[in-house]
Structure formats: C-alpha cells, structure tokens
C-alpha cells in the first residue's frame, strides 16, 4: 500500500508513523486520494463496488498483479468497458479480441496483442478485473 508523504496533507510527518514515505519513494503514478485507500475486492480480485472504478484504481489493481499499465493497456481497458456497456455482458477473450480488431487494428492479430499486454492465460479475465467489470461468466 502506498501512503502519501505527510506534507501533502499538511499534517506532521510523525503522525503517519512508520508508514510515512519520503518523496523519493513515491512511484510514477499520480498521487491521488484513491491511491491510499485499498478498494474492497472479492476473493478473485474483482472490485466489489464496480462504480468506484477510475484509471487510478486500475493502476492500483495492476500493481497488485505486478503489471505496469501503459496507455496501450488503458486503451484496451476502456474498450472492454465499452463492450460491456454496449452488450451488457463482460467480454470473454475471443469476442474481446474481435471487438478490438474491429475498433483498433484490423491488421494485427488482436488476440496475440492481448496476450502480450495482459499475459497468456485468459487475458479477458485480467482485463475485466483491471477494467472494473464483473468476471466474465463464460470465459474459460
């Protein structure tokens, strides 16, 4: 868990105790309030309150899985959210790949692209997890 350095809050550094970090420790992701609050997750790591999702939460969830999100990742997460909004179902890997192919890149293989970004096994599960979507029910 990341903790904002004390002077950002205008409170004495000692009050944060041993969790206080120095400026040098803070990583690249923007220091926003949500980054110091652990979002509630289900046992599989999906957000319990899906309405909480924002890009900062996505970065935080990705950190738990040791992924550094780039703009390319974020583009996919937003597409997955668009898919879910349009069809009211969380995308499984193959339909998500098709959807990406239609909306992003007709020329490259979207499923390989997905696997490169989000890992080999069931990338759609991880995409849905990081995009704040329900677990895809029909994804193997």
């Amino acid at each position: 868990m990341k903790v904002l350095h004390a002077y950002a809050w205008n409170i004495p550094k000692w009050s944060l105790g041993f969790k206080a970090m120095t400026k040098a420790d803070s990583t690249s992701s923007p220091p926003v309030l949500s980054s110091i609050i652990e979002p509630h997750l289900d046992p599989e790591g999906y957000l319990l309150d899906l309405s909480l999702w924002n890009e900062a939460i996505a970065h935080q969830l990705a950190q738990r899985e040791n992924i550094q999100l780039t703009s390319k990742h974020m583009q996919i997460l937003h597409l997955a959210r668009k898919f879910q909004q349009a069809y009211e179902v969380s995308p499984a890997t193959r339909p998500l790949a098709k959807y990406i192919q239609i909306h992003l890149s007709p020329e490259v293989s979207a499923s390989i692209y997905l696997m490169q970004l989000f890992g080999g096994e069931a990338p759609a599960k991880r995409v849905c997890r990081l995009a704040g979507l329900p677990k895809p029910t029909n994804c193997l």
């Binding site: 349009a86 069809y87 009211e88 193959r94 339909p95 098709k98």
Partner: peptide, 15 residues
C-alpha cells in the same frame, strides 16, 4: 431493466 436484447447483438462477436 436488464434484458437479453443488448447481449444478443454481441453474438456475432462470439461467432
């Protein structure tokens, strides 16, 4: 209400 209509239109993406 959540119906099946929207999800049906996704079926072509599922081949």
């Amino acid at each position: 209400p959540k119906g099946v209509q929207s999800t049906l239109t996704a079926l072509p993406l599922y081949d």
